[in-house]
Simulated scan of single mutants.
Amino acid sequence: MTFDDPDGHDDERTTALDAWHATGINGRPERWDDPGVDWAAYDAVVVRSVWDYVDRRAEFLSWARRVESVTRLLNPAAVLDANTDKTYLRDLGVPIVPTHWSARELPLWDDYVVKPAISAGARDTIRTADRDRAQAHAAALEAAGRTPMVQPYLDMVESEGETSLLYFNRRFSHAVRRTPMLAPGMTAADGVRAQSRTPAPDQVELAEKVLAAIPQALLYARIDLVRLHDGSPAVIEVELTEPYLYLRAEPEAAARLAAALRELISR
């Protein structure tokens, strides 16, 4: 087994590897772009913290397809291809946060969040109540050949928070409440704080509808939900490429991930 980025999320990487080793799975971290790695020597390759794919997406996806031609890749290359461009949200067929995909004719909202469809960690994301600034940022993204996502800022995330549901091999493992990165007084540098949460039945129902629409094997999936102003849940993001899994938020989470990995590589 291998992780792809030995410099990212040390605590979670260590937690996962310890759980793998406890079940007899030998794993070690590797960089995805290291030309010296013999990927065929591994029974499986587990993609984890590929934060640099944003600037190198074509290269990353080409790597994923090459790896998948010689060994098992989790999650699969087709999943990574679809999931690294957030325009996938348009095709989910479930409620999502209202999203305008252009710099033209922005809706009249009190507060805007504008970000590119290919991004990670709130990079190139702004929040503003100024419609002209929102439009200008969206236009700058378009001018750079990037698809803008313009969304209303939902102040319910400050009281309700985002709910992230974690699934390993399609089985629910745990959920966390995540603090909003763009709340007043916070920046991307502050990171995201999370605490264990029991998801509501309507959130579980929505998350499992999303999973049911994905035919490929999934070692891990994180479904991020937020409640709209009417109280109904909506998908804000489906994380299938490089999500933080909050393995320390639930005592059995790492063991569940290890069990899911063993199941998938034993098929």
Rank of each mutant, 00 (worst) to 15 (best):
P184I: 04
V70D: 05
Q151R: 05
Q203L: 10
D224F: 06
L89C: 12
L225Y: 13
I96H: 04
R31M: 11
A140Q: 15
K115E: 01
D52I: 01
R171Q: 15
T128M: 08
T71V: 08
A254R: 01
E252H: 01
D124Y: 09
G185C: 04
A19M: 11
T179L: 05
V114Y: 02
H100L: 06
D85Y: 04
A194T: 12
A58R: 13
I236A: 07
A253L: 01
A122E: 06
S266Y: 00
H100Y: 04
L154Q: 13
A16W: 06
P199Y: 11
H229E: 13
H174F: 03
R178I: 12
D34G: 08
R13W: 08
V210L: 04
R123D: 13
V94N: 04
P95G: 12
T187Q: 07
R90Y: 13
L225E: 09
L154P: 05
V226F: 05
E208A: 03
R66M: 10
V226D: 05
I223W: 04
I265Q: 01
D4I: 15
W101S: 06
D111W: 07
P76N: 07
V150P: 10
W109I: 02
L247D: 00
T163E: 13
V54Q: 03
D33A: 12
A138F: 14
L218N: 10
V47Q: 06
D91N: 12
A103S: 15
A207L: 06
L92V: 13
D91C: 07
R56D: 14
D34E: 11
A255G: 05
E12H: 08
D110L: 10
L261T: 10
R123G: 08
A200C: 02
V50T: 15
H229A: 15
W20R: 02
A260E: 03
A144M: 12
I223C: 03
A207G: 11
E160D: 15
Y244I: 00
V97M: 10
H100D: 10
Y53L: 07
T128K: 11
S266F: 00
L17N: 05
E250Y: 00
P199N: 12
D5W: 08
L80H: 08
W32R: 01
D124R: 15
P201V: 07
V47K: 10
F3N: 09
F168K: 01
F168M: 10
S159D: 15
E162T: 13
Y167E: 08
A249H: 11
A103L: 02
T15Y: 00
H9N: 14
T179G: 08
D91Y: 05
V70A: 02
E158N: 08
R90W: 12
F172T: 04
